[in-house]
Design a protein around this nucleic acid. Structure first.
Lengths: 146, 146
DNA sequence: GAGTGTTATGTTATAGTATAACTATCCCGA
DNA sequence: TCGGGATAGTTATACTATAACATAACACTC
């Protein structure tokens, strides 16, 4: 039995932990892992636990405000592209992620599965590679990473 | 300094750990996690370590004999569908995974990204949902899970 | 066959990701 | 005021993956 909660008006913030987590993602410019979010919140809330972050992520994802990048175990604020049309282009060099709309193609894939008697509920399309910037930075002799 | 290796002719098996790991996957009929593989190998090799399994998986995947399901953290023997055309249909009810060829659609997604100056190297397309069998088993009142 | 480089493996430890299980609090309505 | 539902805190643990270093096997040359 502790007194922690009595002194933490944890219902006073506008939207609580969801907002804190969302703000970390919003101000980062790139995908962030759950434990990175945790670390960035710790200065303000030293006792925050992974569970709290994961719960906030779950709410935000359900609300369509956040996306999970499966191949990175990381999270990114959502654009207005509908979930069923989203394709991520992930640069393995600089780590940046672009969210693209490929509604037509993903729709065709979905339809083909439906014809095969499968009822899709969630789609994950993630393409790894190198972005234009990183490609441009690897002219011969230029000071690029690899 | 131990004597373990002197008594383990670990190069005597036809192809070593790769084969052991592959056989686990071949005889399972569904995706298996790395640590499940580990557990299934332990009766025969009590001192096997995660590293060994992961290394074998890496070899098998590089050789095109095995696939990783990103959204399940699990592994599955590869069919002869080329990597760049593979789509997984994953039943969240029974856990079974179908590998399908969607070369045309995935190709179109890839091309669109290339036009946007992105150079793709690896594609992940995984669709979650319910397979035909599980759908059929959920007529009203039938004894299905949910 | 001693030296050397490469690859595969073993071994130990730890990093990184995610959830379970239980407790406490707040809000709202009966 | 009591109880139900949602949110949050707390503690512990499960699950996934890799780092780092030591050892052994093989192939090749000299």
């Amino acid at each position: 039995m502790t007194i922690t909660c009595a002194t933490q008006d944890h219902h006073a913030q506008p939207t609580g932990n969801d907002r804190l987590v969302f703000d970390v993602l919003r101000t980062a410019n790139g995908p962030v892992s759950a434990y990175d979010i945790l670390d960035r919140l710790k200065p303000d809330r030293p006792r925050i636990a992974p569970t709290t972050v994961y719960r906030a992520l779950e709410h935000l994802i359900r609300a369509g405000r956040m996306r999970r990048i499966e191949t990175l175990n990381a999270y990114l604020p959502a654009t207005d592209i509908p979930d069923r049309a989203v394709v991520f282009a992930i640069c393995d060099d600089c780590g940046r992620v672009q969210e693209r709309n490929a509604g037509a193609e993903v729709g065709r894939i979905t339809k083909a599965l439906v014809k095969g008697n499968f009822r899709p509920t969630h789609r994950v399309v993630e393409v790894h590679g190198r972005c234009g910037d990183c490609e441009a930075n690897t002219e011969y002799g230029a000071g690029a990473k690899a």
